[in-house]
């Protein structure tokens, strides 16, 4: 929007008074197209903003958000008192970093593979098959994983026993879960994420690739010098967006796969699961919002930092 205004301002030049109205009229089609998004964000992001106040009150049904007694930072105290805030935040961030970094690398890899496939039929089939796990509910994923891995009658252990090997008990071994959870996450998300990159590859000017071919570039050179640089803006934007959510854990995945098995918590407990367990029986809206606010503030800081870093390195790709 900012850019649009700037362009318009230079175009209309000196006639400043009629400038804004003229600009608005001139870009009416674009504005109309933006309207649903603007309404959406206004309704779901800006209108509930005053509701943040709920994080600072002792919520009760009669008083509602603004009628309940104000208690300052007491709702945040609970997080601090648990003595786990650091560990939880660390777990959440590390998992998300793994998800973001590995997820994007794998998605780019898959997108490039898809792009190189010659058989249209095979391309479609493999794309669909990779996409499917995305639609499986996390609850089912949890059950699936349990049936694969459980000690007494799990699929993996049945095979191990048949092969005469020793049984494997992941549900009593916290060290294996970071790897397992990342694998499960990648299995679910890669198909979906690769579509974005695949679309970006499709958007690369075919003439450049033609020209490279004429110049004698081989397949790998084409990928290295044309496709990968072409994906950079997409990657940067996706990373920046992901940074905002880096302290928001994937509750569905963790809760359904790990459940409430406390043996595994040292390596699998994230902010969401902790809060869920601690506050679920109390049904404390205020506390949940306090945690949400804490996550958002850190998310905001992360976005600002990463945008700053991106701007230093590659000013064109920064968000603002």
């Amino acid at each position: 929007m900012g850019k649009g205004k700037a362009v318009a301002a230079s175009a209309t030049g000196g006639k400043k008074k009629r400038g804004i109205r003229e600009t608005l009229w001139k870009y009416r089609t674009l504005e109309l197209m933006c309207l649903p998004a603007i309404i959406f964000f206004f309704m779901f992001s800006y209108m509930p903003l005053p509701g943040i106040y709920v994080a600072f009150v002792n919520y009760n049904y009669q008083g509602g958000i603004f009628g309940s007694p104000f208690i300052g930072l007491q709702n945040f105290q609970f997080l601090a008192e648990s003595g786990k805030l650091f560990e939880l935040t660390k777990n959440t961030i590390l998992y998300n970093l793994a998800f973001i970094i590995l997820g994007n690398i794998l998605a780019i890899f898959v997108a490039i593979l898809l792009n190189e496939m010659r058989s249209k039929w095979f391309k479609k089939v493999s794309q669909t098959m990779m996409f499917l796990p995305y639609f499986i509910s996390q609850v089912l994923v949890g059950i699936l994983v349990y049936n694969l891995l459980n000690y007494d009658y799990g699929f993996v252990n049945t095979i191990l026993v048949k092969l005469g090997l020793e049984k494997w008990g992941p549900y009593s071994d916290p060290t294996v879960w970071p790897v397992l959870l990342v694998i499960i996450h990648l299995w679910q998300q890669t198909g979906y994420n690769s579509v974005v990159y695949f679309a970006a590859i499709m958007g690369i000017d075919a003439e450049i690739i033609e020209a490279a071919k004429v110049d004698g570039a081989n397949g790998f050179q084409k990928i290295r010098y044309i496709i990968l640089p072409g994906l950079r803006p997409t990657l940067v934007i996706l990373l920046l967006f992901a940074m905002g959510g880096i302290v928001k854990g994937n509750f569905g995945l963790f809760y359904n796969v790990v459940g409430t098995n406390s043996i595994l918590f040292p390596t699998t407990d994230i902010i969401e699961t902790y809060v869920y367990r601690a506050a679920t029986t109390e049904f404390n809206f205020s506390r949940a919002s306090a945690v949400g606010l804490y996550q958002s503030i850190i998310g905001f800081i992360m976005v600002m930092i990463s945008n700053f870093v991106v701007k230093k390195i590659e000013p064109d790709y920064s968000l603002f």
Partner: peptide, 10 residues
């Protein structure tokens, strides 16, 4: 981002 806090996670 704050808006997400108010409607998203809670």
């Amino acid at each position: 981002v704050l808006g997400l806090a108010a409607c998203g996670s809670s």
